[in-house]
């Protein structure tokens, strides 16, 4: 087998390897299920509770994607504004840093006061946490236009808007699509935090309920469901990135 085939297989082999080691460790040390269930126990729970896992996964996926899409729109808009003007940058940046430093779990109670428990706080928490990396990346792309390029265009009579449309925005797209990969994983963090604190559905809520009933394999099944959703969404974003900004990834193709 050639080395490129091995590289293509590597993710699967490592994953299988991890589960094998896990299974063996549980069996060898005879760990009780409420400390660490073996992968086979978790698999059993997945099969047994498939219907609630599926329903709650759909809910979590929905809140995550909704929050993520809001973050894309808001992040893109604010990133462009910040990259556009030094005054907006200087004024908003410290605010954004401060805002981003607040643990989002601390915001959920406020959202609950405003919107009640359920879907809306989960969407908004996902939005709040996913939004920052998008803003920073888009603004960075705009702020790092080569001064020579700007001079060439300005000498031709280009307006700020021309420079943004012709150079700034296309240039910031690799940063933007790169940030989507970070943002989508963060969005999961946000929605699950909110579901754990204040919701009647979603994987976070399901795990909390399972924990209170000492159904440890189901708690772990929830984690597996989150991991699978996370990997799938990340892969979609990575594909989108290559698709939209292939020119910035030429090193991988040639």
């Amino acid at each position: 087998m050639t080395s490129s085939r091995w590289i293509a297989l590597a993710p699967w082999l490592w994953t299988i390897g991890l589960f094998l080691v896990w299974e063996l460790a549980v069996k060898i040390f005879n760990l009780p299920v409420f400390i660490l269930p073996a992968p086979t126990d978790i698999w059993e729970a997945i099969v047994k509770y498939w219907s609630p896992i599926w329903k709650n996964s759909v809910q979590t996926l929905f809140t995550t994607v909704a929050g993520f899409l809001l973050a894309v729109v808001g992040g893109l808009a604010l990133g462009l504004a910040i990259g556009w003007s030094r005054a907006i940058y200087a004024g908003l940046y410290p605010l954004m840093i401060g805002f981003n430093s607040i643990p989002k779990v601390a915001v959920v109670p406020i959202l609950v006061i405003w919107f009640g428990i359920g879907t809306i706080p989960a969407v908004l928490t996902a939005f709040l946490i996913a939004f920052f990396p998008i803003v920073v990346n888009v603004a960075t792309g705009l702020a790092t236009i080569e001064p020579e390029m700007e001079d060439v265009l300005r000498a031709l009579g280009a307006k700020k808007l021309d420079i943004m449309l012709k150079v700034g925005i296309p240039r910031s797209m690799p940063y933007f699509f790169g940030s989507l990969k970070v943002a989508i994983t963060l969005a999961f963090v946000g929605s699950v935090i909110s579901e754990t604190v204040a919701a009647n559905s979603g994987i976070g809520h399901m795990m909390l309920a399972a924990q209170s009933q000492f159904n440890v394999p189901l708690v772990w099944a929830g984690l597996v469901a989150l991991a699978v959703l996370g990997i799938v969404m990340y892969a979609i974003m990575a594909w989108l990135e290559i698709r939209m900004t292939g020119w910035a990834h030429r090193g991988n193709r040639s």
Binding site: E146, E148, M149, D151, V152, R154, A155, L156, G157, A158, K166, V167, P170, R171, T245, W247, A248
Partner: peptide, 19 residues
């Protein structure tokens, strides 16, 4: 008094847009 569009400019850095 402002940018003269009758000029063309070229710098040491070719600054071609890669896309």
């Amino acid at each position: 008094s402002g940018p003269v569009s009758i000029a063309g400019m070229a710098f040491q850095n070719p600054s071609m847009l890669p896309w």
